[in-house]
């Protein structure tokens, strides 16, 4: 009998007070799509292909991103420019196959492909998810500076762009 009384007069009020307490707290819910929380720095979203400072594409179509992709989402065909350099004639990522693991970014030797913070690219037709090179390249001239801290600023290291301490 004591047990029942304890239940009625102790446990239930505690529960109710908890509810009341929480009812007046500020909610954690973010009202998406009117409010958008910025993603963590290492968030992996939609890919983008980077360029050098003179506007030329970084991607040389080496095939490492396609080889490392566990979902076989990347297709590319290389070709040659007039200057004799190698570039990607066709570069496509099937974003539906992609699992956004980031292996392509890790594998790329030219700092060409990165996964950005874009996640709002839903669509209603499957074939719209084949993103071609034109879709993936960053706009030129840039509207916002690149979020990437590049190690290599130019395609080939020349005397002019060598850091001072390495000059002899």
């Amino acid at each position: 009998m004591f047990r029942v009384l304890k239940q009625i007069f102790v446990a239930i009020p505690i529960g109710m007070f908890t509810v009341l307490k929480q009812a007046f707290r500020k909610p954690v819910t973010i009202q998406y799509p009117f409010e958008k929380e910025p993603m963590m720095p290492r968030y992996r979203g939609l890919h983008f292909l980077e360029r050098y400072e003179d506007g030329s594409e970084r991607c040389v179509c080496c095939g490492l991103c396609a080889a490392s992709c566990p979902a076989d989402a990347i297709y590319m065909e290389p070709a040659e420019t007039e200057k004799g350099e190698r570039y990607a004639k066709i570069y496509e990522i099937n974003e539906l196959r992609c699992i956004f693991c980031g292996f392509c970014e890790e594998a790329c030797p030219e700092e060409a492909i990165f996964l950005g913070k874009e996640y709002e690219f839903a669509d209603s037709q499957r074939d719209k998810f084949i993103y071609t090179k034109e879709d993936l390249l960053v706009k030129w001239p840039r509207e916002i500076p690149s979020p990437v801290k590049f190690i290599r600023k130019d395609r080939r290291v020349t005397w002019e762009n060598l850091p001072e301490e390495q000059k002899q």
Binding site: A67, E77, P78, A79, E80, R86
Partner: peptide, 9 residues
């Protein structure tokens, strides 16, 4: 073979 395809494919 120049700039056509990668051998592992």
């Amino acid at each position: 073979w120049r700039y056509k395809v990668r051998v592992w494919l």
